[in-house]
């Protein structure tokens, strides 16, 4: 197991290098510089601005300078938020996004897994259609529709919950978590149901049923383990995708998370910020995938053997 981990971690280095290289050159290809604005400025001023941020050096030189800084853990100053370093922005934004993401996943699991299990127990009956349809609302409406609708109903018409902010008023985390989580609830419900149906048709489950065990017991004891495997392999990428996907929710609910910086940085041509968030997110995605793999191996004894070799 330990060897398996080490191997995977060693492989992460070239992966990161590829990510860094592609991003670095791609953003410099995009038209428009970080300091362009409506009023034109004299070329001397622009040159001085570029000099302040090492943008006057040849691109290859900039690239190696960046790698050097990165090794020291320095992601550079943000071009857009001039008083802040990218490290600071990530340190501020990431915990917020992570918290939002965890609540969203929690909500998604809480709604999605039971819905999927219940649905799988009696396929093609009302017990299947009702919970699945309910869980699916989240993938039938984009979050930029669901969010404003929830805000309108619970925030403005009923006045129950705040429509913006994060941790400044009680209850302001509920609507964003539901908005972000509902998409994933639908996916999780679908995947759980699919996985459960698969397992429930296996011979050993039939045997268990034939032995007279109650359906509920069979589900809880035997089927669940096999049924959640696809959910676990989905969760790793989902968590990572969620960070990027949180942009919409963070924007409409006014949440100071990383997702907002991340997309905004691309529009602002905030080179260091794009690079910093990309490197950070890429590292995170690799980590989550690794965790998902480890859990998969752990859930499947045969793979465990294989990984040991």
């Amino acid at each position: 197991m330990l060897r398996f981990l080490c191997k995977r971690l060693a492989l992460a280095i070239p992966v990161m290098l590829v990510v860094i290289t592609i991003t670095f050159f791609l953003i410099r290809l995009a038209p428009g510089g970080p300091f362009d604005q409506e009023r034109n400025v004299p070329p001397e001023v622009m040159a001085n601005l570029h000099a302040q941020y090492n943008l006057d050096a040849p691109v290859v030189r900039q690239y190696f300078d960046y790698l050097g800084d990165l090794l020291r853990g320095d992601l550079g100053p943000s071009f857009r938020y001039t008083t802040r370093s990218v490290n600071e922005m990530i340190a501020r934004g990431f915990p917020v996004t992570m918290e939002l993401g965890l609540y969203a996943i929690l909500f998604a699991l809480l709604v999605g897994m039971p819905a999927g299990i219940i649905a799988a127990m009696r396929p093609n009956s009302l017990q299947d259609y009702v919970p699945m349809s309910a869980a699916m609302v989240g993938i039938c409406l984009p979050s930029f529709v669901l969010g404003p609708i929830l805000m309108l109903i619970f925030g403005i018409w009923l006045g129950w919950l705040p429509v913006s902010g994060w941790g400044s008023t009680p209850g302001d985390k509920i609507l964003p978590a539901i908005t972000l989580g509902s998409t994933y609830a639908a996916y999780i419900a679908r995947i759980t149901r699919g996985g459960m149906l698969e397992v429930l048709s296996q011979d050993y489950i039939r045997t268990a049923r034939a032995k007279g065990l109650s359906t509920w017991r069979v589900v809880m004891v035997h089927a669940l383990r096999g049924g959640v495997t696809p959910v676990v392999s989905y969760l790793g990428p989902a968590l990572a995708g969620l960070l990027a996907g949180s942009f919409v929710v963070e924007t409409i609910f006014q949440i100071p998370g990383l997702g907002r910086f991340y997309i905004q940085a691309a529009f602002n041509r905030d080179y260091t910020m794009i690079m910093g968030t990309t490197v950070f997110l890429a590292g995170l995605i690799i980590l989550f995938n690794l965790i998902a793999d480890v859990i998969l191996v752990w859930l499947n004894p045969r793979l465990r053997q294989e990984a040991g070799h």
Binding site: S164, T251, Q254
Partner: peptide, 18 residues
Amino acid sequence: FYPVQQPATEERMFRAGQ
């Protein structure tokens, strides 16, 4: 001073008394 980019969000905040 709140940095609210979307006018729609801002308006909802106004209506909700924020």
